[in-house]
């Protein structure tokens, strides 16, 4: 059991981040903190992909003359990282839209605290 825990410590870490992000989005009162938690949630998935793409004793997927074509396993699979570049762009765009909406909320209600906001919306 302990070996299973230690052997997959990177995955445990991403799971912890994922749960932390979800908890923050549900429990935090401040909308900016909710947004930060959302970013943590997205980062956890990005880290999950990066973890699954990494490999010990392997190199970047750029053609290296010293590695012959017979052992392609010495290269890292670049696809998960490429996918995550796109996912990071999506995450940045989402954060940008979220900030724009938060500015709009603040201008209309002069608060970003959820309880105060719900009172002022009545």
């Amino acid at each position: 059991m302990l070996e299973f825990m230690l052997g997959h410590y990177a995955y445990w870490f991403t799971t912890a981040l994922l749960l932390l992000g979800l908890y923050g989005m549900l429990a935090k009162q401040n909308l900016v903190k909710k947004l930060i938690a959302m970013n943590i949630l997205q980062s956890s998935v990005i880290m999950f992909y990066v973890t699954m793409g990494s490999k010990r004793n392997a190199t970047v997927p750029v053609l290296d003359p010293s590695i012959t074509a017979s052992n392609p396993y010495l290269y890292i699979n670049p696809l998960p990282h490429t996918l995550m570049l796109t996912a990071i762009v999506v995450s940045v765009a989402t954060t940008g839209v979220a900030f724009a909406i938060l500015i709009l909320i603040y201008r209309r209600y002069k608060t970003l605290d959820e309880t105060v906001l719900l009172e002022r919306m009545k």
């Binding site: 979800l22 909308l31 959302m38 989402t94 839209v97 979220a98 909406i101 938060l102 909320i105 919306m121």
Partner: peptide
């Protein structure tokens, strides 16, 4: 609307 949109954004991102 912005509050509704923000809630939609959080849930949609999840």
């Amino acid at each position: 609307a912005p509050v509704a949109a923000f809630r939609y954004l959080l849930l949609g991102t999840i």
